[in-house]
Every structure is written in structure tokens, then in C-alpha cells.
């Protein structure tokens, strides 16, 4: 069997890639995609811990399912916001959205 730590490392790598995307991308949609990567990293962790912990107790899988649900809801609301903001100013580049500063 593959050691648990391998999965956790893959998940850590995926999380850090997502983190980089969140910090470095200009476009709001791209940032959202990076956040999705982070959430996936979390899910890899959860499922791996479920598998190598107690597979009879479903906590990890339930948690992962809840993360799916939340991710879907978040994406829907986020994309609705992007569309609304795009209507009002033709850009979703985060640096150009700067009406308020201080």
C-alpha cells in the first residue's frame, strides 16, 4: 500500500500551488480556480485520513461531501458576483477594481 504521508504530501503540494495562485493571479476567476485547487487539496487529505484511519466511521467522507457542497455554492455566488461586476465595469482584474483605497 502507498504510505499515508505520500497522499498528505501531494495534498500539501496542491494546496501550496493553490496558495500561489491566490496570491499571484490578477484575474478574479483565476483566483477562484486557485481556491478550488486548495479545496481539492483539503479533500485529498480528508479522504486519505478516512482511508488510513477508521474506514468504518464516515466522518472524513461526510466532511469531503460537505466541502463539495460548499465549493459548489461558493462558485455559484462568486461567479454571479463576477458577472455583476463585469457588467458594471468591464473588468475582473483585481488590481483594476480599486474604487476604495485606504
Amino acid at each position: 500500500m502507498i504510505p499515508l504521508s505520500w497522499y498528505v504530501l501531494v495534498s500539501a503540494a496542491l494546496f501550496c500551488i493553490g496558495l500561489f495562485g491566490v496570491l499571484a493571479r490578477r484575474n478574479a476567476v483565476a483566483i477562484l480556480m486557485a481556491v478550488e485547487l486548495m479545496l481539492n487539496a483539503v479533500n485529498v487529505n480528508l479522504v486519505a485520513f478516512w482511508r488510513y484511519g477508521e474506514p468504518q466511521a464516515m466522518a472524513g467522507q461526510v466532511f469531503a461531501l460537505i466541502v463539495f457542497t460548499v465549493a459548489a455554492a461558493e462558485a455559484a455566488v462568486g461567479l454571479a458576483l463576477f458577472i455583476a461586476i463585469y457588467r458594471s465595469r468591464d473588468t475582473v482584474a483585481v488590481e483594476e477594481i480599486d474604487l476604495m483605497k485606504g
Binding site: I31, F82, S88, M100
Partner: peptide, 13 residues
């Protein structure tokens, strides 16, 4: 709009 977008991006991350 802008506030919501910022809130969303920070919050999601």
C-alpha cells in the same frame, strides 16, 4: 459590487 468581490476573494481563500 466591489466590496462583495473583495470579501468573496479574501473569504474564499
Amino acid at each position: 459590487n466591489e466590496a462583495a468581490l473583495k470579501y468573496f476573494l479574501y473569504g474564499a481563500a
